[in-house]
Design a protein around this nucleic acid. Sequence first.
RNA 1: GGGCUCGUAGCUCAGCUUGGUUAGUGCGCACGCCUGAUAAGCGUGAGGGCGGUGGUUCAAUUCCACCCGGGCCCA
Length: 1161
Amino acid sequence: MGPTLSGPDGRMGSHPARGPASGRARIWNRASGGHRRGCSGLVPHYGRTRDAAGSRRRHGKYRLCRRSDHGPTRRTSDGRTGSDLGPGCGVPGDRARSVCRCARRGGHFGMSYRNLPDSIAALEDEILRLWAEEDTFHRSLEAVKGEPEFVFYEGPPTANGRPGVHHVMARTIKDTIVRYRAMTGRHVTRIAGWDTHGLPVEIEAERMLGISGRPDIERLGVAKFNAVCRENLFTYKEDWEQLSQRIGYWLDYDRPYITCSPEYIESVWWAIGEIEKKGLLYLGYKVLPYCPRCGTGLSSHEVAQGYADRTDPSITVRFPLTGDPDRFLLVWTTTPWTLVSNTAVAFGPDVAYVEVAHEGALYILANSRVASLFGDGADVRREIPASELEGLEYDRPLHLAPSHPATTGQLLAAPFVSDADGTGLVHIAPAFGADDFDLGQRAGLPVFRPVDDAGRFLPDTDQVGGMLVKDADPLLVALLDKRGLLFREDRVDHSYPHCWRCDTPLIYMARDSWYVRTTDVRERMLAENAAIAWHPPEIGVGRMGEWLENNIDWAISRERYWGTPLPIWLCDACDGREVLGSYDELRERVGPLPNAFDPHRPEVDDYQWACRADGCKGQMRRVPQVLDAWFDSGSMPFAQWHYPFENQELFDRHFPADAIAEGLDQTRGWFYSLLALSTILFDGAAYRHVLVNDLILDGSGQKMSKSKGNVVDPWETIDRYGADVLRFYFLVSSNPWVPKRWDADALHETNRKLFDTLRSTYRFFSLYAGLDGWSHEAGNARKPAERQLIDRWLLSRVDTVAAGAARALDDYDLTGAARRISSFVQDDLSNWYVRATRDRFWASRPDSSEVLATPDAFATLHHALVTTARILAPLAPFLSDWLHRELTGESVHLARYPDRVESRDPELEAGMDDVRRLATLGRAAREEAGIRVRQPLRELQAVLPGGRSLEESLVDVLSAELNVKTVVFPRADDDIVRLSAKPDYGALGPRFGSRTPEVARAIENLETGQVQALRAGDRLELVLDGLVADIAPTDVAILEEASGDLVVQAEDGYLVGLSTALDEELLSEGRAREIVNRVQRLRRESEFAVSDRVRLGIEGPAIIERAAHEHAAYIGAETLAVSIEVGKEALAEFVGVHEVDIERGTVRIGLAVVRDDASAG
RNA sequence: GGGCUCGUAGCUCAGCUUGGUUAGUGCGCACGCCUGAUAAGCGUGAGGGCGGUGGUUCAAUUCCACCCGGGCCCA
């Protein structure tokens, strides 16, 4: 043992002398009675660790003993069972050390790395318990107190529904973002929020009360109704909290913001007050689907439930042009009653219009509709350009309502007009159609609504006063006919919305509505939006940008009950109005408020006061509406702090948000309300980055919905795979903003590929670290720069991957980060590093130059695992924390995201990439040659792109991987490669145009000498039919292809040539490996513990027996054989003799376990 | 009905911005290999011509138009 070895765990030869008594290792002392000289290889596993994982292993509760401990390289090959072969741990130079954990020697830290819990659920439960016990979340916040804030806003979910699997995705995205920022040292306030107002809550209350519709609610009383709403707000709060906590979404649930709390509402009032002060609040109309019988507007969701087929009149009416009684506009409608309120006619700017002569009159209509209205022989006089239509006036067909003084209307261009049906000219009544209303708003048209809340024409309406509007249709049609304006009358069968409660056909009708004049800040919103970093960007410029371009004023009032009451009081006598911005302002008017003041309806409706206008005797009464719930949630940046009444400083520190992340459906929802309110109130956007996610569809691409029964229960999946797997699946499978199909198989795959691999790698590490007594605290590894090449390679990869993941997360590319981590763990860490270095974890050689190999390997793997845990932590917080705690003693969520770059060695990484590519090709060549890897080969020729070569230690990695004795790098123009040229179409196409294919063909047929010339940098002239093509080296890609008698594989400039010649020496060695292979299989079939020592007897064809003799040491080492006997007699004493097949010859193998006590001496 | 978006192997996705040779990855499948992490791992192969139609171009999965189908939002 070299002097460098006498570290704190200086084991080796010193071990027997020191014994356990001097160590802090305890329990096993009693259990094993100290060091057991006769180590059997089976070590009872006692100690503090649980044996969870171990119990699943075949060797049960026994830890592995390592055969290297018994000096396998010195095993005899002469078949005798020399006593020195026994576990003579005292043999000088024998590495009797950790086998029994008796190697836990004095001064050591006594640490071991626990086995993983039995199941994913057990692991995650353990972590959840730890988080709860030590309050890791708040400790992580404490740890960065005073550090710069990373501002994150939690969009409040409606507490009204059960959280589903798509919420898990949304919450995973949010949590990953904020955990990452927290790990970069930012303080991230994360306050939970609840969206508590709005129609969903009311509908649930109606359901519970067994009532339906406004009349029912009014009968019951608003007080009772709202009480039920309030009681049932948090029916699902528990579900949300439990699910959020279970998936590791760290949020402050202790003091959430709740949109129906008095403080929150007061902040919202403040906002409305500010809007009023800025002159941006006004009373207008909003067109809603309206049930005349129930007297209520319906939400689009309700409307969607009530479509049914129905027959309506379909009439074409002629509108005479003003002052030109023989020219008419032809207008089509299925709602004759709305003609009473006709205000304009719209035409499509892109539709072609013509004038048709018919029975002495001229008619204007869309060209494409002429045939259907006038037949084939129509007398089309001329085309009418849009410029001529614009502003044209006509006489209104029905002039019955005194509230509608205008006798003429105008032609207006409207993009929504098509010529798909009707006449291409659309009758516009702003009070009775949403498109009509929007057009009217843009064009400044008045809204005439001669209809009351019950859907009846106002009494003063001529002819039809007091009639239900739909019932008036026949009368109105007859009237039109009488006046000679009815051009054509039909019936139409179509799908029409009905009230889902009472089946009454709905009408669209303008209702009183309070508006915020967002059009005043449209340009500001557009500018702010352009400055927001959208992920992905196209949603910002596309969906959001277009929506803002077409922004219309925001209708913020709802004719409902359970919501933030509008703080608007109107005088019932004059046009006075007061908009309150605080409860104090209310107190000033009505005196002290109750202690438990609740601003909700109906109490708030009772507050009235005398109008302050001079001489006015009126009373100020609150308007009946409540606030759009989007206004509530859009207020959360300030309302969560009860700003401006409290917490000014907190608000300042938390505005605007650095990031928000919600579903695509929030574009016109929360994303908009946040932007609109913050632009109006604070002249800036409320968020700088926004990460958008799309829906999760079911396995066949259908939207999940309760009615379809295709909703995935998140709990089921979490129980099965754990939260980490579910989280990681969402992140890794595709970018958040593409719709994701739910794929249960992919979950399984995620678990297997990343998590199983990582767990397995940890298990490997902890197993041998435990056996070896190695701990990261030992400090006995060399500096990274002094370690072996493959260690340095892994350390470099770790840093490269960590930096890449950090860069991706900085850019909100969660999927990119997830994929980097995943492929690192699988490809680099497990499948390359661990596989290539396995033997270093149990068999360092006694010569001094290599003696530190094992601590180096442990330290390297330890570092890689710790770093992996850290880079994985924001994405999969459970396993990463478990590993990190076990590997370092600290929660990963208190650690920093790795940002080291000092170990990066790009050249080394590139070199290893070369090795891996060559290894792949080499395996392919073996496959092609039909020579298994077990058969050693003499030589591999390898060519790298650009003629580079590999440094020696990389060559060693390659030759070990491919089981070849030597690797040589021939010059590329040696006879194993042949050159050819491939045309670069990108370079040729522009120069040769249609002759490109000919030139390309000529290039493909170049002779070797010509290609060599190109490769040397010369130009070539190719003479084609009537064309001389001047070919430069940049016009081609030069390929090296196989030639000669080697088995060759090549790709992308990489090439290997495998010499398949075999000689006796190679064959014998190959046979030895075959024997080992068979013995290992037999061991497994016999269910031996992997650490059992065995005796071997081998009998078979002469070539096999010779190989067994020649390579006995090797065979013994590989198979843990303490003795190998060869020949017929050798098998006599074996009970178990197995026949196997090697090279078509029968080989008989005797196999017996060497008993523990037999060797215990 | 309008705006946006997606449609690529049995399944899940990449590539399309800046057109260019035989369109990639993973799963699954078949065959083979390796194994002291092992209900793992590695290699090879089969499998699509990129939803359809038409256009632009020497050249289209990539650009354009229309159509079909899914999704979101708005009506």
